[in-house]
């Protein structure tokens, strides 16, 4: 059974709302950071590798041309 009579009761939690909600919010932020940062790293790596491959191809092309 739901423990609170209304939404505002649920948010206030008898005066403990700030502590409870702050804990959950900080946890959410920290976990999102952990989940996202390897993705950002991976994307940056792939962009950098693609650029490098293009440079190498360009150098090979020059060698063929000359």
């Amino acid at each position: 059974m739901f423990q609170f009579a209304s939404v505002s009761d649920f948010l206030l939690m008898d005066g403990h709302g700030l502590y409870v909600w702050a804990s959950y919010a900080i946890t959410l932020l920290a976990l999102v950071f952990l989940a996202i940062s390897p993705s950002i790293q991976q994307r940056a790596f792939i962009i950098q590798q693609k650029r490098q491959q293009r440079i190498e191809e360009g150098q090979n092309q020059q060698r063929v041309d000359s």
């Binding site: 939690m13 008898d14 005066g15 403990h16 709302g17 502590y19 409870v20 804990s23 959950y24 946890t27």
Partner: peptide, 11 residues
């Protein structure tokens, strides 16, 4: 402890 104990579920 009242409702503050609900922090246990992440702590």
């Amino acid at each position: 402890q009242g409702n503050s104990y609900r922090i246990i579920y992440i702590h």
